[in-house]
Design a protein around this nucleic acid. Sequence first.
DNA 1: AGCACGCCGACT
DNA 2: GTCGGCGTGCTC
Length: 802
Amino acid sequence: MNIAKVIVDVQAKAINQTFDYLIPEKFRDILSEGMRVIVPFGPRKITGFVVGKKEESEFEQLKEIIDVLDINPVLTEELLELGKWVAEDTLTLYITAYQAMLPQVLKAQYKKELIRNTDEELAHELEFLFAGRDVIRYEEFVQSTVPYTTLRNAIQDGAISINYLVKSKVTKKVITFIEPNKEAHLLEEAFMDLSPSAKKQRHVLSFFLEFPEPVEQQKLYNLTNTNRAVIKALVDKGILREYKKEVYRNPYDDTSFEKTLPLPLTKQQEMALHPIIEKIHNHKHDVFLVHGVTGSGKTEIYLQAIQEVIKQGKEAIVLVPEISLTPQMVKRFKGRFGSDVAVMHSALSNGEKYDEWRKIHAKEVKVVVGARSAIFAPFENLGIIIIDEEHETTYKQEDQPRYHARDVAIKRGQYHECPVVLGSATPTLESYARAKKGVYQLATLDKRTNNQALPKVEIVDMRNELHEGNRSMFSIALKREMESGIERGEQIVLLLNRRGYSTFVMCRDCGHVKRCPHCDIALTYHKNSNQLKCHYCGYEERMPHLCPECNSESIRYFGTGTQRVEEALNQLMPHARVIRMDVDTTRKKGAHEKLLKRFANKEADILLGTQMIAKGLDFANVTLVGVLTSDSMLHLPDFRSSEKTFQLLTQVSGRAGRHELSGKVIVQSYTPDHYSIQLASEYDFEKFFLYEMQIRKKFRYPPYVYLALITVSHQNHVKAVQITSRIAQLLLKVVGKDTIVLGPTPSPIARMKDRYRYQCMIKYKNEPELRSTIKKVMDLYADEMRKEDLSITVDMQPYHLM
DNA sequence: AGCACGCCGACT
DNA sequence: GTCGGCGTGCTC
């Protein structure tokens, strides 16, 4: 096996295939599939993944692999196969799929440098640029005024050559330790010899006389109240010694988690857990849907199933929506499994993510708890995969590869012959329908573990409030409940649902709304900078004093931001202490946890926030949940808007009365009769499911059909429409008669970054050839995509129709 | 994609 | 003769 098949790091359709390379003698024994290599590619050097080996190649002149980057393969055989499947299933490039499976820092960076090959005089500009050096960075040339032709000539003459470099982004964290450099009695001698005026040095030495152990440099500074200078003096005298050690960055201090033991299960939990355990014992794959109301103890089921898996010497993956949002979740896993747990989520730095990944790769942990991409954890002996809050949209990646973690989980579950558990209080219609059909195993938990009733939900019709002269954003009922709650010393969670409903700027005189000049969307007002920003392209301008249309001074921002609610709250109840949680107050690392901790410590009466407070919070003292704007996303152009509203209301309601105190929920709405609001208030998932399924059936939406969305964008409006139309016609010709091809229709954001966007939607039940057909159609436009700056993207099973 | 190479027109 | 701007074709 002297030849390696390599997928190279070039994102282009024409390169989406394996390339053969000769394995040099020195790498023959060590090179295996799944390793990263550096290979020559045309004039450059790039990285690639070895996906296979073979004896012969149809190419005559093979180049040799330049270097091998890994000692152990970064992708297992399973992951190589899985990546191939992901790429083909989502219609993306192999290299894109492989890179999505690995931490960012393993992606190489490419650099160039110019090398002088001759002592002879160069063109004078080049001579000036090199300034006596033999090697310069390529950027130096780019930044200079030297014409390209001059360099080109020098390269053709052989006077200068380009060196292509592959640089690793990997940085490993190193900690400096300080320890005594002498034995105890010699140390004591040294102590005596120290000048009596060297107070600090004597203090440090006395510390080491008491504890002759290595100490982290930083800790030593703190413990002995010294600094670099003092320690250096002692090191220079040969009394102390410093050494460096490579460590994992540990974003969670394992010792700070209290060890927990399995809790006794309720009958319902027992019944849900039992069949899962059975599959674990029999090494059989199956998909379980655990449909449990908030507080029904789903997490305990996960924990005990994982315990069983660990007992068998196998590993577990737990996906949670966005783990930084639920420190309580991490606490529960770390509390039960301690340092056997790796944690992966977007709030970690790239270095931290890499370290957590290395722990998995090195088989130092048994469990990974993480967001979407943790589904690719390089375990080789998986015993269970759990997806908590299965309905969350974050499990679908919105850029390439556009995979859904649930699909990947099931694929891996099949490979490892292990169960996949989906958990939710409000499952997606897709999963629930499958469970009802018997494709998934359904377990229902309709009782809370503490037998507390779910909090009562009161819907307030905001139209009546308006008629009765209450123009504020708080209904009379909500105000009353907030006041009495605070009086009793209880806490309140207020949700401002502002998805699809941000703060835009409108002139009260002429109705003019400020829009982005490059995108078809209203600009959003940002108070702290007094600027208007576009959330799609980043365009920004100053908030105008006068309406640009009619010069009126009555130009104001509309919509309800959390800041405005906070101000109104302060006016309404000056004594109430409010914590505001939104993108602005949680931008800084760790800000999230800090705010939640303050709320938990009862440093505030009201927690006011956006969607991010709806999930996973568990505060014993919260008895009231208020939803200020329950219907803001009902009117989005999205077939899931009812489902999402139902999910959000159900979830946020579950935040009240989780422990001894009973809870209450007040939902304010302008459409109080809407079924998703009504049924959420009754916690009637079953009824909601049946009703919504009828609607999906009538309008032909999932789960009755599968969707594929093709989005075409181009600077020229007419061109975008024309091409979309042609694609729709081409597809219509080949698909089955039950398949619906819609389009061209303008995308919900019809213009973005000065490009017009049109889409073609395909609704199908059974189209085994659809992927290859779409590929062929895309190939027809390959040339135009390159030359004419045309863009065509495909999303199989889109979540948002943007 | 990213690069080299070659051709062409413009300008000293 | 240079200089700079495209278009084209190749990458094991």
